[in-house]
Design a protein around this nucleic acid. Structure first.
Length: 416
RNA sequence: GUGGGUGUAGCUCAGUCGGUAGAGCACUGGAUUGUGGCUCCAGUUGUCGAGGGUUCAAGCCCCUUCAUCCACCCCA
């Protein structure tokens, strides 16, 4: 083996790239109808941006970032997620002065230094959407409706939308206290990992897959019982609006987040088809983030979709490449020369045309036409060329007729 | 960072007790000198992941290493 790609960073080859293009195009269409505009930010940001937004003690910041110093000694980081860069750009470019409500979407590669496995890679791709400037619960429902709409549009149905509320800086500490109090009495029943979590991040214990932990936390206090009145009203409205829009969802009060900036509404689009990775998309509200990064005190909400995970769910080769319209098979060098010029002319008119460049036999050329799944084959023989005609073969019908080269383009277009 | 599985032809994989490297598919040519798919015939393709060790002899046994997949952790 000579030089290979970096571990966890994959090539997307013809045959599967069509699926990617399909998923990206549908996102542009659907998000566009909801009034979202695309934003593109650099793949690299100052390290500080991610430390301050995602949270110093999260796994992402502590051990998963691709961080390095550039030649002038600045600490830079390959973006591990999209919300922080978009927020940074929003503030830097003062987008709130252009419009009190910003609806933005992005798509592109993200980087995390993790051990690769099914549905999890070191360079992975997200399609994300963010709304900055609206606190009303209608926008929560709108964002979820858009995500649901997109999932329907691309034909992903084995998914469930789960929503939760994490409360806000006002009510979350109280809940945390109650949960710690509950876990304290059951520490022995928890797995080793969760005994560690108990001190570092007690909310994560609720998310543990170990059966002992699940049993021990069956009666654990619910975050939803500890919401302050503002958060409770907001969550109630989100649910009401979702019902009004007939968006199917379930409430999962044990859903937690890996990023510190989330408050109030959080949600995930989950599936059981991706091995141990169950989230296809996830997001939530981040009302304090813009201000904490030095911008105006504006609320925000958004989500990110894992593109690789969608591709895995769609399955390979589910989106087929478009077939060539015409394959030109030539007999002899003179015919090949004429075919070459004719092919080029047709391509200029938008006809997907192909030919052989290796002087192969007619049989071999026909085989190739068949392999490429060409709709028609034009056979240019010496005899026919003398009177300006050729044989046009319909590869599906297996029928053929003589056509004049003059009117070939019209003839083709009428048949395609 | 931790644990397990797998590395043999372009692809999917056989390979017995350690004894000269195999099949299917794909590709190329032919049967049909100017007609694809189906069929038949023929042919090409190997650093057996790499390095070392044991042995008369290693794809097979031992050690090391690399890659990859899956899982833990965490997450999209």
């Amino acid at each position: 083996m000579s030089i290979t790609a970096i571990k966890g960073m994959n090539d997307i080859l013809p045959g599967t790239v069509e699926t990617w293009q399909f998923l990206e195009q549908k996102a542009r269409e659907v998000f566009g109808t909801y009034g979202f505009a695309e934003i593109r930010t650099p793949a690299v940001e100052k390290t500080e941006l991610f430390c301050r937004s995602i949270g110093e003690t999260t796994d992402i910041v502590e051990k998963e970032m691709y961080t390095f110093n550039d030649k002038s000694g600045n600490s830079l980081t390959l973006r591990p997620e999209g919300t922080a860069p978009v927020t940074r750009s929003f503030i830097q470019n003062r987008l709130h002065t252009l419009d009190p409500v910003s609806k933005l979407y992005y798509m592109g590669p993200m980087f995390r230094y993790e051990r690769p496995q099914k549905g999890r890679y070191r360079q992975f791709h997200q399609i994300g959407a963010e709304v900055i400037g609206v606190e009303d619960a209608k926008i929560d429902a709108q964002v979820l409706a858009m995500l649901h709409h997109y999932a329907c549009e691309i034909g992903i149905d084995a998914v469930e939308l789960q929503v939760n509320s994490l409360g806000c800086p006002e009510c979350r500490p109280g809940y945390r206290k109650a949960l710690i109090g509950y876990l304290e009495k059951r520490l022995d029943a928890l797995c080793a990992e969760c005994q560690r979590r108990y001190t570092t991040n007690p909310l994560r214990v609720l998310d543990c897959k170990a059966t002992g932990c699940k049993e021990a936390t069956v009666d654990a206090p619910s975050v939803l019982d500890h919401l302050c009145s503002g958060c409770e009203i907001h969550f109630g409205q989100v649910k009401k609006h979702l019902q009004a829009l007939a968006i199917p969802f379930s409430v999962n009060d044990r859903m937690v987040r890996g990023l510190d900036y989330y408050v109030r509404t959080t949600f995930e689009l989950v599936t059981d088809q991706l091995g141990s990775q169950n989230a296809v998309a996830a997001g939530g509200r981040y009302d304090g983030l813009v201000e904490s990064l030095g911008g105006p005190a504006l609320p925000g909400i958004g989500f990110a979709i894992g593109l690789e995970r969608l591709v895995l769910m769609k399955g390979k080769d589910q989106v087929v490449a478009t077939r060539p319209d015409l394959f030109l098979a030539a007999l002899g060098e003179d015919a090949a020369e004429q075919a070459f010029v004719l092919m080029s002319k047709l391509q200029r008119s938008g006809v997907r045309a192909e030919m052989d460049y290796q002087g192969k036999s007619l049989k071999a050329q026909m085989r190739r036409a068949n392999k490429l799944n060409a709709r028609f084959t034009l056979i240019l023989g010496e005899e026919e060329l003398r009177n300006g005609s050729a044989e046009l073969k319909d590869m599906d019908q297996s029928s053929q007729c003589q056509v004049a080269l003059d009117g070939l383009e019209q003839e083709l277009l009428s048949r395609l």
